[in-house]
Design a protein around this nucleic acid. Structure first.
Lengths: 145, 145
DNA sequence: CTTGAAACGTCGCCGCG
DNA sequence: CGCGGCGACGTTTCAAG
């Protein structure tokens, strides 16, 4: 994990479909060397995968919300993980400090769909109640780093 | 935008570095046809780009937080956008319903770094105060859809 | 790092609905 | 006329030296 690896990460963060020659150029390496570095970053888990940035608006998923989750008792992170992963509208889930136990990021086609998905969250036995914050407009969403 | 395009999107969401032959196989198309579809999805903006999923833990960015932002007066989304985009630790920003005006998702190396970045957020003239929720553990983070 | 063979990206052309 | 398949050529990948 050195400056060259960071340069490679910056490159695939900007465009995951870069060729190894392009990655190598960005990092000052030949294409085969760039491939070995990238393969190693994937093998060690520093890079978890490659994905596309989808315009959810264009696909009709226009409704987004942050949901604060309050639990009954003290469920383990693993229990929450398992229960919430079953709900595809939950895009992101974290346990958090403060009054709430967890924070969810949810994505749905419309308000009706969101309501139905939140209903499924509330039906998780260990979850007591939720507090929703609806997203009005997404200002930006930066590729990390 | 039909079922074939959705299949292509699911494929590149799962692995943005898929070859056109793989994308085509997933969608029931030949490689050139898959490329034409993918190029069109990019051209129309349905696909905004391709990026890597980085294990931020492995790179020493271990501290994450959600920040509720309360503003003075009624700034436009554009004003907030411009001010917040200057702060690289702000990974995501949305205007929201409810008591707060905006919700930020921030990423930092450690608590000291986060504190310093939140300080910069507070120095934005239009921002009145912030409320931080520190992420304890990330349960999951799903590629959307 | 360089090499050479295999795989892939890319383009033009043609056929179909 | 848009859309998909096919074939061909230049480029990229990738393992061996």
């Amino acid at each position: 994990m050195d400056a060259i690896d960071e340069e490679i990460i910056r490159c695939v963060l900007r465009n995951a479909r870069s060729t190894y020659a392009e990655i190598g150029e960005a990092a000052g390496l030949s294409a085969p060397a760039a491939k070995r570095r990238l393969d190693r970053l994937i093998a060690t888990g520093a890079i978890r995968g490659f994905t596309a940035l989808i315009d959810t608006q264009a696909l009709g998923w226009r409704t987004e919300a942050f949901i604060e989750v309050y639990c009954k008792g003290h469920p383990t992170p693993a229990e929450l993980h398992q229960a919430l992963e079953e709900i595809p509208e939950v895009v992101e889930a974290c346990t958090v400090s403060g009054a709430a136990d967890a924070m969810l990021h949810m994505l749905a086609r419309d308000i009706a769909h969101l309501e139905q998905a939140i209903q499924r969250v509330r039906e998780v036995p260990v979850i007591d109640r939720t507090e929703s914050v609806i997203v009005l407009s997404r200002l930006f969403n930066r590729p990390r780093l």
